[in-house]
């Protein structure tokens, strides 16, 4: 029996086990972002323009998501969703094995739902940094609302949204570690399962720690590069 504090061999082996969970973690992150970005943006617009019903709905949605721990959201959705769906399937005599669904699908739904609420607030504050005059000028030269947003407002809005988008993305990557609660084959679950065999939890946790750190630092760097590119028109002023 090895009496040293850390089993280095296990540490190294498990690092690669943890690493093999990265694709799933990134897949969940990318899909959740792809769904949450447009939802967050359009709901932010309904808040800013005070669109009657949607504005109220968005407020409730954001408060609900912010006011509850994500792990509880996961448990609730994971138990309620199949319950509702099986009831519906029963009603229409659809034969679908709802309890055999890959947890990946639940992860997509839960993390989109959660990140969408964060992004509403990110975009709402970013949109406010673009003066109303930019939109008016676009209208005055004959652009439609869609063209004005695509070509004038969104490029400027993104610059101020970037730091918060980066934070939201990193929080999302880290939150995918909670996927172990629904048996999602991601970084944390894989390393913990490996640790179960010989009770090498400390090594497994260190590995998990390092993998997330590498992942998040990389994402942070990518956002910094993107931010620099997007804000070229501002940077030149001082150059």
């Amino acid at each position: 029996m090895d009496s040293s504090l850390i089993n280095v061999e296990f540490l190294i082996d498990t690092f690669f086990v943890a690493l093999s969970g990265v694709p799933i973690a990134l897949l969940v992150t990318v899909v959740a972002l792809a769904i949450a970005l447009p939802i967050g943006f359009f709901l932010a617009l309904t808040r800013i323009n005070e669109i009657p019903v949607l504005n109220g709905f968005t407020k409730v949605y954001v408060s609900f998501v912010r006011g509850t721990p994500i792990i509880i959201q996961i448990f609730v959705l994971y138990s309620i969703l199949p319950l509702i769906l099986s009831r519906i399937f029963e009603q229409y005599n659809i034969d679908f094995p709802i309890y055999d669904v890959n947890p990946l699908w639940y992860a997509f739904i839960i993390f989109s739902f959660n990140t969408g609420a964060t992004l509403v607030e990110v975009f709402r504050s970013a949109l406010k940094t673009v003066s109303a005059g930019q939109l008016e000028a676009a209208y005055s030269v004959g652009l439609s609302t869609a063209q004005a947003y695509r070509r004038i407002v969104i490029p400027q809005m993104l610059v101020s949204a970037m730091p918060n988008l980066c934070t939201a993305t990193i929080n999302l990557i880290k939150a995918t570690s909670l996927g172990y609660a629904i048996s999602l084959q991601e970084i944390t679950l894989k390393a913990k399962v490996a640790a179960n065999v010989g009770y090498n939890y400390l090594e497994a946790y260190i590995d998990i720690f390092i993998v997330y750190l590498i992942l998040c630092i990389t994402v942070e760097y990518l956002f910094k590069v993107a931010e620099k590119r997007l804000s070229r028109y501002k940077a030149l002023a001082t150059a």
Binding site: V141, Y233, K234
Partner: peptide, 28 residues
């Protein structure tokens, strides 16, 4: 019609020539 604003309202993310060309290329 065209409008000249008190606060200029040039498109901040576009160069001078892009500002002028925008309404021609996209609007017209």
């Amino acid at each position: 019609s065209a409008f000249v604003f008190q606060n200029y309202n040039l498109f901040n993310n576009k160069t001078a020539i892009e500002n002028v060309a925008e309404g021609l290329i996209i609007g017209r």
